[in-house]
């Protein structure tokens, strides 16, 4: 019997045949929803083999290692209650955790509150760049809802839509997107000029298509202003929610896009790295979720002309939805992403 987990992290046992069935069913779900190509039989068998290995921690063969990037890096250590400054945290990431890029981030992790403290963040960026050598990104979320009532000036679509006020809801989102673009460009310019190598727009499109639109436009404007700036666009979920429903970028309707289509617009806007996300279904097994995540990420990688770094963490990429992602699953997802998808990074 194979000891594995459900998507909520609880342990279960399955036979190898059941593991294979679930990997195939997860794949079929991705094929149906994303209209992407299915995996080949050898790829399915490879995923099953990774799931069925008896070791708690599994890894890749030598030569198949991936670039490792970390989002919201400085927040994750301070959350543990360790009294340590941001430059020192990033030195730990670089020298102890084998990170290939570093991300400096403020605790609010949203562009709107950060615009008030850009000079302080510039100081932290400058200080960190003096003591580290890996590429230094500054990361934050577009977080469109902060621009809508009661947290901001724009009408709140989540209240207007259920009341049937569709046009007002759409206008509110468009207005919020314009505010978000301004803040993203302002903050990103400030930290880039202080020495950051680039920007990570993290958890993009969490509030739907208007937020994705704002991110793409901000990316476009920043690349026009600073052609050498590195920009990573990391998604919030596998699917762009059509909360507006009519917004387009480069003639493509944003609502309803899956990773393999999202990445093409990220490229067009000027992004250098795309962070694909596939949501974990907590009611399904780990093999089901892994089969599904690999199918989406493979389609994304095949469509992409820029590097794709899949999100592998709590509740994404096939990793169960638990506070501390279990290493047996994280290592299996990472191995499958490297060996089956031939991904560029994690």
């Amino acid at each position: 019997m194979v000891v594995t987990r459900m998507g909520d992290g609880s342990f279960i046992t399955m036979t190898e045949e059941e593991v294979q069935r679930d990997v195939e069913e997860g794949m079929a779900d991705a094929v149906k929803k994303g209209k992407v190509e299915p995996l080949g039989q050898d790829e399915i068998e490879h995923i099953v083999e990774i799931c069925c290995r008896p070791q708690k921690f599994v890894s890749v063969e030598k030569g198949n290692e991936l670039v490792l990037t970390y989002d919201s890096g400085t927040l994750k250590v301070t959350r543990l209650g360790i009294p340590i400054g941001m430059p020192q945290i990033l030195q730990l990431y670089e020298r102890a955790f084998s990170a290939d890029s570093l991300e400096l981030a403020y605790v609010h992790y949203s562009f709107k509150p950060i615009k008030m403290i850009v000079p302080e963040e510039q100081y932290a960026v400058a200080e960190t760049s003096l003591v580290t050598t890996a590429p230094l990104l500054y990361g934050a979320m577009p977080n469109l809802p902060l621009y809508t009532q009661p947290d901001g000036p724009c009408p709140n679509a989540a209240e207007l839509l259920p009341a049937g006020k569709i046009e007002e809801a759409r206008r509110g989102q468009e207005e919020a997107a314009e505010y978000a673009i301004k803040d993203m460009v302002y903050v990103s310019s400030g930290v880039y000029e202080a020495g950051a190598d680039g920007i990570d727009f993290d958890t993009t499109a969490a509030a739907g298509d208007a937020e994705f639109y704002a991110t793409l436009k901000a990316t476009e404007q920043l690349k026009a202003k600073y052609p050498e700036m590195a920009i990573e666009i990391g998604m919030a979920g596998e699917f762009v929610l059509g909360f507006h429903g009519q917004l387009e970028y480069d003639g493509v309707r944003l609502a309803g896009l899956y990773p393999h289509k999202q990445v093409k617009l990220a490229e067009k806007a000027g992004a250098n790295v795309f962070g694909a996300v596939v949501n974990t279904n907590s009611s399904r097994t780990f093999p089901w979720n892994l089969g599904r995540a690999i199918t989406f990420c493979k389609a994304c990688t095949e469509a992409a002309e820029i590097p794709v770094h899949a999100n592998v963490g709590m509740g994404v990429g096939g990793v169960p939805m638990v506070m501390t992602p279990p290493i047996d699953c994280v290592s299996r997802v990472s191995t499958a992403m490297a060996e089956v998808v031939k991904l560029d990074g994690l």
């Binding site: 929803k33 839509l161 259920p162 049937g164 569709i166 809801a169 759409r170 298509d209 699917f239 929610l241 059509g242 909360f243 507006h244 429903g245 009519q246 609502a255 309803g256």
Partner: peptide
């Protein structure tokens, strides 16, 4: 559910 139409359209239909 299949992502062919979105929340505003759903609400118009509901209305």
């Amino acid at each position: 559910e299949s992502g062919e139409l979105f929340l505003p359209e759903l609400i118009q239909s509901a209305g």
